[in-house]
Nucleic acid binder design. Sequence first.
DNA 1: CGTCCTTCTGGAACCGGTTCCACATCGTGC
DNA 2: GCACGATGTGGAACCGGTTCCAGAAGGACG
Lengths: 338, 338
Amino acid sequence: MSAIGDVARLAGVSKSTASRALSGNGYVSEATRKRVEDAARDIGYVASSNAASLVTGRTKNVGVVIPYVNRWFFGEVLDGIESTLIKAGYDLTLYRLSPEAEQRQRVFEYFLVRKRVDAVIAVGIELTGEEIQHLRSLGKPIVGLGGPIEGIPTIGIDDVAAARLATSHLVSLGHRRIMHLGGDQEVQMDFRVHAKRLSGFRQALEGAGIAASHDFRAVEFSIPGGYAAAMEVLADPRVRPTAIFAGCDEIAIGVIVAARQLGIQVPAELSVIGIDGHSLSATFGLTTLRQDPALQGATAATMALSQLAQPATHTAGGHNPIPVTLTMRSSTRVPASA
Amino acid sequence: MSAIGDVARLAGVSKSTASRALSGNGYVSEATRKRVEDAARDIGYVASSNAASLVTGRTKNVGVVIPYVNRWFFGEVLDGIESTLIKAGYDLTLYRLSPEAEQRQRVFEYFLVRKRVDAVIAVGIELTGEEIQHLRSLGKPIVGLGGPIEGIPTIGIDDVAAARLATSHLVSLGHRRIMHLGGDQEVQMDFRVHAKRLSGFRQALEGAGIAASHDFRAVEFSIPGGYAAAMEVLADPRVRPTAIFAGCDEIAIGVIVAARQLGIQVPAELSVIGIDGHSLSATFGLTTLRQDPALQGATAATMALSQLAQPATHTAGGHNPIPVTLTMRSSTRVPASA
DNA sequence: CGTCCTTCTGGAACCGGTTCCACATCGTGC
DNA sequence: GCACGATGTGGAACCGGTTCCAGAAGGACG
C-alpha cells in the first residue's frame, strides 16, 4: 500500500534520497538515513520488487527446471539449491517439467522468458540447442545439473564411469554372473542416464572378458520397481546371478528386500551394489557409489550466482564432473563359489 | 530486449492498441489484432511480467511455504500444487522454511511481502496470528494445509481421529499390548502432529479400557528411525508388543524391515499399522490409513485460485477435514495369543 | 436528420521504484 | 584565495506495460 514516496514525505526528504537511504546506493548522511529508516519502519514499508526489477532488470529470482519433486535425488537437489539461494537473498521459482513436449515448450517459451528470473538452473533436463538459444538470447546465466550440455556450464557425475566402477567392484570380488537392473532403454530420462549406466556396465564386463548374455533387465527407478524385478529374477536358483548392479539405490534396496523375503542371504549368496548414496542405503547395509545431490544442487546454485555477480566472464561452458565415492557396506563380498 | 513500443511501431499502431491486441482486453479490430500479433512474433516479443504486475497489481505467482522438500509427504503435496498452478498459468515460488525462527521471520517479513506473490499456501506450517495479520493486511489469499489455522481456510486430516482409528483397528483385532512409535514430543512439528497422534492413540486405548504403560517411544519420522527403534523394542521377546501403531508409514516400514531381520513374522507375531498411504506401503504389505497428499496439494491450490478469482467472497476461514481411508493389507491381523 | 450506442484508436497518466544530472557545501592542498 | 574532489540532496527521466479518457466513424432508431 505504502510507497517510497510516502516514506520520503514522512522523513522530509525526496524520493531519490529515500531510495538511496534504503537501498544503500549512493551518498546519504547518517542522520537522514536514520530518519528514512525510521519512517519506513513506522508505516511498514516494503519495497515492490516489481518496480525495482522493472528499472534494474534484476529480479533476485532464479528459475529451477526439474522433472520430479517427489523423488529422492531431485528432492535433495532442490533442497541444496533452495538453501543456497535463500541465503543469497534470492527467490526460487519452480518449474516441474513433465515429459510432455507441449508443456515443456510452454515453460521455455512462456514462463521462463518473461523477465521474471535472473538465471535458470536445469536439473536432470538436457536442454535442446533451441532452448539454450532461447535463454541465451535473454542474456541469462544457465547452469545444468545431471550431465553435460553443449555450451553451458554443467555439473554431474560421469554415469558411464560410475557404472563401470560399480561393476568392476563386483568383478574384482570374483563375480562372473552379474546382472544389471537398470532403467528402461526405451523410456530414457534426459542425458540418457539409463543407457550410460548400461554402457558402463557392459564396458566393465567386456574389459574383464565376461560374456554378457541376458544380463540386463529394465525396471522402474524405485524400490517397488527393484523389488518386483528381483522377485522374478531371483526366484529360480538355477539361473540366479551371484551379483546385481542396480541402476540406483532405490532399485538396489528393492532387490535386497526381495532377496530377504526369498531367503537369499545378502551378501553370502547375492551381492548388490547401487549408485546414489540414498538416505536409506545405510539402513539396508547397501554398498553404493555415493554422490551428494544436495551438495550438487548447492554447487549449481553457487555457480549461477557467481555468473550473476560477474557477467563479464563470458559464459564459459564445460562440464564439471563430480566424483563418486565407493561406500563399502555389507551388501557385497566374494561370491560363495569362489 | 524488445518492448511493446517496438511491436506497436512495427505494426503501425499505438502502444495502447498493441497492448489491447496482445492482452485481449478492450476493442481491437480483427485486422489490427492480426498485424500486432504478427509483429510481436516477428521480433520475438514477450511481455515483461514485472511491468504488467506493477500496474495491475497481480503477479500470476503463488508462494508456497513448506518445511521440507525431500520428504515423501511434502514432495507429493508440492507436486499436486505445482501441477494445478501451472495449468492455471501461475508460477510457483518456493520457500522452504527451516525451523530456525529467524529465517522464518525473514521469509514472512521480507520475501513474501514484496508484492511478488498473489497468494500464499502454507504447507505443514502453523501460521502465528502475527504472520496471518501480516499477510492478511496485504489482501492476499492464504490457504493452509496440514491442520486448522484460525481465520483462514485450511485442509488436512484429523490427526487425533486418524490415530484413534488406527489404534482401534488393532484393538478390534484383539490386540492388548500395543505400542506407539511416534514423533518426539519435544520436537513438535507445527500443528503438533506428534502430540495429536499420540493423543488419539491414548484415547483409543482408554476407550478400550487398556492400561497404557511404556506404550510410547519417540522416533525420527523416517524408515531408519522406525528401523532403529524397532530393533531395540522388538529384540526382547518377553516385553515385545503384539502390535505397533506407527506415527507414519515410513516408521511402519522401518518396523517391518526390522521385524523381518529379527525373524519376527508380520503379521503372525506382530501387527503393524501406519498412517499415510506411502508409495512404498504396498510393497511392504502395510496396512495403513491412506491420505492423498498430492490431491490435498491440488485442492489447496484450487482453493487459492478460486479466492483469487472472486475476491468478493470474504475470506471465509474454516477447516476442511480430509477423510482417511483404511487400506487393509497383510501387516495386521488377530494376535497369535487369541 | 439528429441522437445515441457500439466499435476502434491514440494520447497521456500512472504503477513504484532507480539513477542520471545538476547544484550546493565543505574540506583540503597549493 | 582558488581549484578541486568528496559528500549530500532534489528534480526529472525512465523502465514497460495497462488503463482512463477523448474523439472519430459507422450503424440503428426515433
